[in-house]
Amino acid sequence: MPQNATTDDPRRLAEFEARIARCKTIEPKDWMPERYRKQLIRMMSQHAHSEVVGMLPEGNWITRAPSLRRKMGLLAKVQDEAGHGLYIYCSTETLGVDRNDLIQQLLAGTAKYSSIFNYPTLTWADIGAIGWLVDGAAIVNQTMLAKASYGPYARAMVRICKEENFHKRQGFEIMTTLAGGTREQHAMAQDALDRWWWPSLMMFGPRDKDSPNSDDLLRWKVKQKTNDELRQRFVNITVAQAMAIDLTIPDPALKYNERTKDWEYGEIDWEEFWRVVRGNGPCNRERLAARRRAHDDGAWVRAAAEAYAAKHEPAASVA
């Protein structure tokens, strides 16, 4: 039972749910239950924040990329993440929120973003692991969201999924090269996989039984699959890729189930998951501080653009 059942008009709610059941798309001006709107704003703004904060761990390595080819690829990837943040912020605004308010929530530390970006990028191999695992996990999630019932979100996801295939391949190419290199390079790739594997599995969120928002999101077809279903899909895809480049998934409990055709994995460290979600991961404070600094340093650019527009307004204004 949705929390808003008493406040929403029951007739309109029934019409809305019938539309969802017929797999119709909901557009910004359509009537929607308050809880659908709130859940979408929460989910989409967290997604936008994640794209923006996600630039930080990788941006860290642009100047130290080992070749011009790698540098061009990484630069283009980080630029894509900025674009993805912008797509999703604007899609979120169609729900009646102001982007500036969302950004202020991020800077104030009251908004959440994907915990994966609170882990440090210690070596170049981490850039490979992020593209392969973090973007790989994001693609699994976003491919599902491209069919979300809310039109502006689904359309942003279609665009993003197209672009992120390049992200995953550039990461996997880095891992393949390192894993096939010297013994030291192979060890570097394995070390990155060891550190990023479990946080990547955590990206899919709590187990289904501990996921308080999932029921509404599934019923209203914002999500079409549960956290655990998506996590399993990611594991199944990724294990074969690791084997192909001679890297070992750091999970002694990992085993193939002939009957279900699933790779069964060991227990995730949920204490670590909640610790990072609550703001006490390795880099939470550093990321927010970097984001605030970037926002403040850009203030004069925004002010200058406004001043220039105001000065030229009579000539440039739309009749």
């Binding site: 604007c90 359309r155 665009r159 925004r302 653009a305 527009a309 030229h312 440039a316």
Partner: peptide, 10 residues
């Protein structure tokens, strides 16, 4: 899609 900008050129 949409975006924010100070003027048409930007």
């Amino acid at each position: 899609g949409s975006l924010h900008a100070a003027d048409g050129e930007l």
